[in-house]
Write a protein that binds this DNA or RNA. Structure first.
Length: 866
RNA sequence: GCGGACGUGGUGGAAUUGGUAUACACAACAGACUUAAAAUCUGUCGGCCGAAUGGCCAUGCGGGUUCAAGUCCCGCCGUCCGCACCA
């Protein structure tokens, strides 16, 4: 038998697809459309196994939908702006553009070798001026319509490198390059007013505007938007207060616990803190310490809770004569609410920790159900559950949910506050102080303020010459680029040197794929046909930010008339990540970023992990998602070179459920390779079988071997179709293994008739095609199938062959399996009972005992309780 | 710290969604073919007891609900993702 040679066959079929433009998407309204999109990759350098998993999944869907008769759009492009290009330029002296486009060339080639059913004619990179000119145009549109504003926000500042750091670049409060403790700086930046759409973004998660989205993603988005109903209220200063601070506004979601208030706390960034800091060195030092934590919410919340008391007290709103101390506390976020809270120590864990530390009162006011008010006490654990209010005067005895509106109403009557709706979601800061991004089309003029770049001057492109030798923004220090005339008054002015957050680029790429137009972001008619994306596929790590931003941006685009859709992604599938051990050089004098090692740099022997070249021991780090930064990447090329793209694809999709993370291991790839060969082996002897008119002779009265083969064939079609529809590729593959094993035996032993053989093999070639398209083409052509396998229709299951005549029921005695009976599928319960009780094994276990209960679950199980 | 998930043989995992736990695959072992190896094929394969029909135990740990729990509930432990300037 001639062995299948993927090295020769795979490129041949890829050429055939390319020459016939098999995957080119034409806008054809007579056919149902299907838009499959995987999140496009960042061109980090090389494709890794995680990418293959992602794109193989989308490819199965794309090919399957095409076989089902859909007009499929399956495009590919590059999320090409971003920091790594600039870091690479700084490190090795090249230009970010060169680095990026070289990477794209390599990765495009790697992806093409995987045999993906992609319409490459629609490819673009977000760093192409042809793409980002439209982004700049839309930004001007959004600005005009009031979706954009300038505001202050805080950034991590590296005082040595004089540069803004990403949260990722702040390690233990220090800059990753300089090692200097970071500081917070306040900059004036651009924002998209996403909070204006918070309500709609939230509502759409529930009202059917989304199709099928994973529950956990919907929940994460809801929590992220964080709608809360609460009370914004003012506490009045007790005694003299500095001018402007006679009252302090706080936000709370728990006004029902107002009687439990024992202190008030403001953020270190609160104006009140700043006021006292001017004359208090200790406070200045405390605020400086807080600011060294960095800007990430994670770092702030993980830090030990600390505070400093201010020389001011406030009056309790309800309790005459009671005053509360006011603290500056490091866990209060300025961005949330009003940057100030009242501490309800008994019913909030953070407040309790703080109160215990500074010896403040802990007054329980919510009594858990069944607790005794006389003895109920709080020790180290706050009570945050439901209950009845006590110790609270006019609220006493009310369930807490009734106390909430009552407390709010009282404060409103007193004129000290009002019930409000608050969102955790903050406006989207889109300014980045970097070169390798889309320039923000704005001009700063001393006379006219900030003015938009006139539309005819777009695109604002990046200057080719720039200095990447030092940290900081090369656009800002560029000798000429930013100096321009003001478009309004023609006086000397300067360009905005911030570029867009790369999330802006990825917030509308799907629309550009669907409906590219030369002079506008989209061609409206094409967009109407192709959008929304029918199936979006990507990593769970994007569950919140990217997806939320894209949903927001799409709403803006709709309002500007570029689209008719507000929800870009109809159905979403979030696949698990491919994770791998990380390896670190043990030399701790190096910066962390320079210590990561590639898996191929290390060897494992005798339970020791050492460097492949130097033999020095290596520290094994956490198992994390594959990323260029931590170098824990594995390239698919070795597998593809050895076994072919089909085996690599099959292997990536087999075994693990798509939504679950997988720890990368090559063990098992040979099984995929063996399978590819078995398929060829099964088809090889049947050359041209589909040319012969056998198929007409299939009938339902055939001998047993024929019938059981046909039953399996049609059951396989049925299952695999369902498994693909519901993203259970691993299960589809398990089914296919069984089908192929049986088909192969039947064909080689010649136990089935020619028409059944033809049917079996015809189904085989077509049903494996979405998974392993090259060998499918090879077999299809060999069998004499018409045209290309990728254009062949998906097989249909004959329902009549799916029904079974008998069913085997397990029999349990007291919940333990003791026997089984085989009965006709339509057997009645009485008959089943009789048969079950007369079974020998069952008899042994019920002998001499009284039957208390007999449960028959039709078609499932029988349980006898004795 | 907060939010979201996950945990089943030596390994990846399946279990019709409360109804036969371990399908399918990998690895391992044994055998066939071969001068030999590779490749291929066949068989065994959760643990313990037993010659065997069989029995007991086992789905991270501890409880609970149920005729019946991997699946539902409560409490732990561990791992992963996100936390707004990584993409």
């Amino acid at each position: 038998m001639a062995r299948y040679n993927p090295k020769e066959a795979e490129p041949r079929w890829r050429r055939a697809w390319e020459e016939t433009e098999a995957f080119k998407a034409e806008t054809d309204t007579s056919k149902p459309k299907y838009f499959v999109l995987e999140m496009f990759p960042y061109p980090s350098g090389r494709i890794h196994i995680g990418h293959v998993r992602n794109y193989a999944m989308g490819d199965v869907i794309a090919r399957y939908k095409k076989a089902q008769g859909h007009n499929v759009l399956h495009p590919m492009g590059w999320d090409a702006f971003g920091m790594p290009a600039e870091n690479a330029a700084m490190q090795s002296g090249g230009h970010p553009r060169t680095w990026t486009y070289n990477n794209i060339a390599i990765m495009r080639d790697q992806l093409k070798r995987m045999g993906l059913a992609i319409d490459w004619s629609r490819e673009f990179a977000t760093s192409d001026p042809d793409y980002y000119v439209h982004e700049q145009r839309m930004f001007l549109d959004f600005w005009r319509r009031g979706f954009v504003e300038r505001n202050e926000s805080q950034v991590n500042w590296d005082p040595v490198d004089h540069t803004v750091l990403a949260n990722e670049q702040v390690i233990d409060g220090k800059g990753w390059r300089s090692g200097a403790p970071v500081e917070r700086r306040t900059l004036s930046q651009w924002f998209f007013k996403i909070t204006d759409r918070a309500e709609d973004l939230l509502d759409a998660l529930d009202d059917g505007r989304l199709g099928s989205w994973p529950d956990n993603v919907v929940l994460m988005q809801k929590n992220w938007i964080g709608k809360s109903k609460g009370l914004k209220m003012r506490f009045h200063a007790a005694g003299r207060a500095p001018a402007g601070f006679e009252s302090l506004e706080i936000y709370t979601t728990r006004p029902d616990t107002l009687y439990g208030a024992s202190f008030m706390a403001v953020s270190p960034d609160h104006p009140l803190a700043a006021h006292y800091a001017a004359e208090n060195a200790e406070l200045r030092a405390f605020i400086a310490e807080c600011q060294k934590i960095g800007t990430s919410e994670e770092a702030i919340e993980k830090a030990e809770k600390k505070g400093l008391r201010l020389p001011i007290e406030v009056r309790h709103p309800f309790v005459e004569g009671k005053t509360l101390p006011v603290f500056v506390a490091n866990f209060i976020l300025m961005q949330y609410g009003t940057g100030a809270i009242f501490g309800s120590a008994a019913h909030d864990q953070r407040d309790l920790d703080f109160a215990r530390k500074y010896d403040l009162d802990v007054i329980p006011v919510v009594l858990p159900p069944d607790a005794d008010p006389a003895t109920f006490a709080i020790d180290q654990e706050a009570y945050t559950g439901p209950g009845t209010i006590f110790n609270s005067d006019f609220l006493d005895g009310l369930p807490w949910e009734e106390a909430l509106p009552k407390a709010i109403a009282r404060i409103e009557e007193m004129g000290d506050g009002e019930g409000t709706t608050n969102y955790r979601l903050r406006d989207w800061g889109i300014s980045r102080q970097r070169y390798w991004g889309c320039p923000i089309p704005a001009i700063h003029c001393t006379n006219c303020g900030v003015v938009p770049v006139p539309e005819q001057d777009l695109p604002i492109t990046l200057p080719d010459e720039a200095d990447f030798s030092a940290p900081g923004n090369p656009l800002d220090r560029h000798p000429t680029w930013k100096y321009v005339r003001c478009p309004t008054c023609d006086d000397e002015a300067s360009r905005e040197t911030d570029t867009f957050d790369t999330f802006v680029d990825s917030s509308w790429y799907f629309a550009r794929f669907a409906a590219p137009a030369p002079e506008a972001p989209t061609d409206k008619n094409m967009a109407d046909y192709w959008l929304p994306v029918d199936q979006y596929i990507g990593g769970i790590e994007h569950a919140i930010l990217h997806l939320l931003y894209a949903r927001y941006f799409t709403r803006n685009m709709k309002e500007c008339g570029y689209l008719n859709e507000e929800e870009p992604f109809r159905n979403l599938f979030t696949q698990g990540m491919v994770v791998h051990e990380t390896y670190l050089d043990t030399d701790e004098s190096k910066h962390l970023k320079d210590r990561w090692l590639f898996p191929e740099d290390i060897v494992k022997k005798d339970g020791q992990v050492v460097h492949a070249e130097t033999g020095k021991p290596v520290t094994v780090g956490a198992i994390e998602k594959m990323s260029k930064t931590k170098k824990n990447v594995v390239s698919p090329e070795d597998i593809a070179d050895t076994y072919g793209a089909d085996a690599a694809r099959w292997f990536m999709l087999s075994d693990s459920p798509p939504e679950r993370d997988v720890e990368w291991s090559e063990a098992g790839v040979e099984g995929a390779w063996r399978l590819v060969n078995r398929i060829w082996d099964t088809c090889e002897g049947a050359k041209g079988i589909l040319h012969q008119p056998h198929l007409g002779h299939l009938s339902r009265e055939m001998d047993n071997a024929d019938m059981s083969m046909r039953r399996l064939t049609h059951a396989t079609i049925d299952h695999v179709t369902g498994d693909i529809e519901s993203f259970r590729f691993n299960k589809a593959i398990a089914r296919l293994y069984e089908f192929i094993a049986t088909a192969r035996k039947a064909v080689s032993a010649d136990t089935i008739s020619a028409p059944v053989r033809a049917e079996t093999l015809s189904v085989l070639a077509r049903i494996v095609s979405p998974f392993i398209p090259h060998i499918a083409e090879e077999c299809w052509a060999h069998l004499g199938g018409e045209g290309l396998a990728c254009n062949a229709p998906w097989p249909k299951a004959d329902k009549a062959l799916l029904a079974t005549e008998t069913v085997t029921l397990p029999i349990q005695v007291n919940g333990k399996r003791r026997g089984e009976i085989t009965v006709p599928a339509d057997a009645g319960e009485v008959e089943v009972r009789k048969l079950a009780l007369s079974d020998d094994a069952v008899q042994r276990h019920i002998e001499g005992k009284q039957i208390r209960k007999l449960i028959v679950v039709p078609g499932r199980i029988i349980n006898i309780v004795v």
